[in-house]
Design a protein around this nucleic acid. Sequence first.
DNA 1: CGCTTTTGACCAGCGC
DNA 2: GCGCTGGTCAAAAGCG
Length: 240
Amino acid sequence: MGSDESSQWMLNHKFEEQDLIISSELGVFPFHANFASLPMLGNICSQPLIKTTTLPPPPPNCLAADSPALTLSHHSNQKEDLITTSHFAAGSQILALQTSSPSSNYWAWGELSDCMSMKRSGGDDHHHHHLGVSAMKMKKIKGRRKVREPRFCFKTMSDVDVLDDGYKWRKYGQKVVKNTQHPRSYYRCTQDNCRVKKRVERLADDPRMVITTYEGRHIHSPSHDEDDSQASAQLNNFFW
DNA sequence: CGCTTTTGACCAGCGC
DNA sequence: GCGCTGGTCAAAAGCG
């Protein structure tokens, strides 16, 4: 993938000035500006397995027009078997990103928090805990190695539960989870052979906030309109 | 009529 | 082994 492809993709999708793009190793997720909420200043941190590092320049595919992007990179400080870089732009607050490595039967999941103070930490992981970053959750996958789909979640202030992310979703379940008054909804991508799922729920202590969790990778590009399909088809490989 | 949503049943993983 | 919980299935209902 090259920067030419990236900018061509931006042109093809006609982003408005205030559109928000979230881009990570999981792909690029466009959202319309009216769904954007808090200024994004998050951080991915974990300890002791993963520490934050300096911020490299973002790749071209995570930049929306006039949208400042923050790039965070983190890696294992014990073994070099977990390397994850995430890129996302201002306008949304990402809660968490999960990554798994094919060479490891661990999965790791770091929670994000207010980053205003994190920026002062200078990569010294001893300070991370004092700066409000949740402790790393690490879990060994038992028995037969289960390849866990990459997933991440973020919260957005919105009246509607299902945000317009460019993909078509079919609801396949709803569940009331413990200690919450709002049900969690389960959606699957309607595209044939695409196994991407997402969960949508409202935050217990602030029902204005919608928490969306994506799991898996699309094998196709977003399907906004019928007339987009030709241009989109050429970009399948670039996306996922 | 075909696609989507609803909803109770079922299943699997986990902790005790 | 048992019970709890979250995730998925699938039949029925809803809707355009």
